[in-house]
Amino acid sequence: MKRSHIIAILIIAVAIAALVGSLYDSSTYADLEQAMAHPGKEYHVVGVLDRSQAIVYEPSQNASLTQFSMVDLKGRTCTVMLHKAKPQDLERSERLVLIGEADENGNFHARDMLMKCPSKYNEENKVTGV
């Protein structure tokens, strides 16, 4: 076998390993039902802040815990423990993406959270008229 063939095979093997490995590393978008069914497995859950429930942030007790309630896109609600300080604009958020896992008690523990705020990226920049 020629050297170029060995290199080609090696490169292809590494490429496939990297791609499949990356695929295994990737997380999954899920709704709350799926996340609750697999406690301990990491998911991305998309939803909106449930404004009927209070956002609890007691920094004098724990500065790295924010508790609130989220409604997922299918309308299911759950309590979210965000293990971070309360984001400044949480109340204004339009859409949340939680990254984390559910526990046995039906709470969702988010390690991280992406927030889309209205008008942050021009979505609602509209003149409404009068």
């Binding site: 990297a18 490995g21 990356s22 695929l23 590393d25 990737s26 997380s27 999954t28 978008y29 899920a30 990491e42 998911y43 991305h44 990254i99 984390g100 390690r111 991280d112």
Partner: peptide
Amino acid sequence: DLSQAKLAPPGDAKAHYNKW
């Protein structure tokens, strides 16, 4: 996971990219 077509980026991006 593939059949649901709901793949999300790796949860811990830094760890993932560093690994590779």
